[in-house]
């Protein structure tokens, strides 16, 4: 273990060094938290306050709220996946390509513009929540899927064609079947966007509950311990989803080594 090499660009370090570096960082973050939570004008709540916040949240039905958030997230993800895949998989058709490209460009539109029209079209608040998440996730998802399609080497298309595949078979074998693992990985990356937007979207319908509602209520009463506890819960659930999808991809698709 040579600490001098830790500050050399592109240096390969051993397992022991990696564990040491990680431990140092955890200690530094923990230390910063303790320091930043002491004194009269502290920035963060103390670890004890966060722990208390977590216990009070648990007693108020944290698990039910997590389930509500996950249900909203999965519902939006399901519809988003369906729409995005349909649009992206149709993009190899020259007539439909402009539609997919336009959908991808729309991601630069501000949130308020889209929610304004959604509010006119949708009367039910839960549908509104799902629609907002679905639309925003779809726009980013389509962008990622289009990039994936663009990166498919022409040799793979030619290979399928040389095996007497019709153009539809090429689409099925090379793009749809041949890239399912990529879709799961994109879903994993785009789910982070949905999860991040959850707090904002859940505030549309307080009665439905969810982690967003909990954080909003805690914010109202300036309960910092609860707010940080909730942030950590949201982060942990997000990381679990991420790890779950990654494990799913690697478990089901042995050839998926990226």
């Amino acid at each position: 273990m040579k600490p001098a090499t830790w500050f050399k660009p592109f240096e390969t370090i051993d397992r022991g060094s990696r564990i040491t570096i990680l431990t140092i960082w955890i200690v530094m973050v923990g230390g910063f938290w303790v320091l930043a939570s002491t004194g009269s004008k502290h920035l963060f709540p103390t670890p004890g306050q966060v722990c208390e916040g977590f216990i009070s949240l648990f007693n108020e039905g944290l698990v039910v709220h997590i389930a509500s958030s996950l249900a909203l997230c999965f519902k939006a993800t399901f519809f988003s996946l369906l729409i995005s895949l349909l649009i992206a998989y149709a993009s190899p058709l020259p007539f439909l390509k402009p539609l997919a490209v336009a959908m991808s460009r729309i991601r630069y539109l501000p949130l308020t513009g889209i929610t304004f029209y959604l509010a006119i079209l949708v009367s039910d608040a839960r549908t509104m929540q799902v629609s907002v998440l679905m639309i925003f996730m779809s726009l980013y998802f389509i962008t990622s899927l289009l990039a994936m399609l663009k990166d498919i080497p022409v040799e793979e298309i030619d290979h399928a064609r040389s095996l007497k595949c019709s153009r539809w078979e090429v689409l099925w074998e090379v793009v749809i079947k041949g890239r399912i693992d990529y879709v799961i990985d994109m879903l994993r990356q785009n789910l982070a966007i949905t999860w991040m937007m959850l707090v904002t979207v859940e505030s549309i319908l307080v009665a439905a509950g969810g982690l967003g509602v909990l954080i909003k209520n805690s914010d109202k009463f300036m309960n910092h311990g609860r707010i940080v506890a909730l942030q950590l819960v949201i982060l942990a659930v997000g990381l679990l989803l991420d790890a779950g999808l990654n494990a799913l991809r690697k478990g089901f698709f042995r050839y998926s080594t990226f």
Partner: peptide, 15 residues
């Protein structure tokens, strides 16, 4: 499909 074609990367279906 009448004539087999192998490119220099020896492309195969990855799945």
């Amino acid at each position: 499909g009448d004539v087999g074609f192998v490119n220099q990367k020896y492309t195969l279906f990855r799945h």
